[in-house]
Amino acid sequence: MRLEPIANASLARRLGLPLAALGATVIVAGVLALIAGANPFAVLGQIVTGAVGSKFALLETLNRATPLIFTGLAVAVAFKAKLWNIGAEAQLYAGAIIAVLMGTGAMESPIVLPVSALLAMAAGALVLLGPVLLKTRLGVDEVVTTLLLNFIMLLFVSYLLEGPMKDPMGMGWPKSEPLIKDARLPRIVEGLRLHWGFALALIAAVVVYIIERRTTFGFEMRAVGSNLGAARFAGIPVNRVLVQTALLSGGLAALAGWSEVAGLKGHLSQDLSPGFGYTGIIVAMLALLNPIGVVGTAIFVAGIFVGSDAMSRAAVVPTYIADMLLASALLFMVLALLLTRVRVVRG
């Protein structure tokens, strides 16, 4: 077989194939439910109801989407410049550490919130700076270095929580002291369990969109990503653009951890992130690396997680179905998107 580019793909092809990818994911869900010995329609129904079926469920989904919007944006900007940042998990924890450092008595006035947010972004940027400098200076592949840093950072957090950051009142659990009230992100509407982190994530998406589409840096970033050789030939300072992209990406990922601590949890523990950094890759890819699209796909992905959690409490289907569905959706979607641009011919 051979791939042949399609000059002008029809609208039906461009819309139909991504929809078919989603349909295929739903079929996978049904088959998995059958394998687990459950009624597929009931399971699908329970996932949807669990995700958006009530005010409580919907708010839970939006809360879960908040860190995913940040990590999704972090991955989207990096991948746009073909900078393979697989280390959003580490950058997320860097932001979470700063939220605790600044929020447990270092500053006692409402100004602590913006200060700690900025410092968190700086910390996340710093975590990604190492791998990107190794890439631009020495040609060390950033995929492996950022992946390995995730493990190092988790051990560092474990050390902090059992040592210098341990809550003396924590009954021996490895968690940090709770944040003071000034350092907490308030709820958007009193009485509803949704914090300002969500609003901040939406703002971040718009800001990233503007940076990408309306600034020289955004243009350079896209140029580096689409054709490195041509970008270099056109006189774009490729290495500087990669470093700047990394700083933006690391900063965004850090906000995920910062907002989870300051908005949702109020303290840092080792299970703060169930892989939000990795899931951000799926969120970004499903959104075709479009920052506004990231908001939508983050809510969709969060819905699958929240819905699957609710479903697995009622049915016999293990909650790991959520990860399987997302992995399938990712692979189906990249294949579908390719087929909107090329057709398969024999020979």
Binding site: W84, V143, Y278, I281, M285, D323, L326, A327, L331
Partner: peptide, 10 residues
């Protein structure tokens, strides 16, 4: 990159 990470997750 994308397929590899997808396969790992799957």
């Amino acid at each position: 990159h994308v397929v590899g990470l997808g396969v790992t997750l799957l």
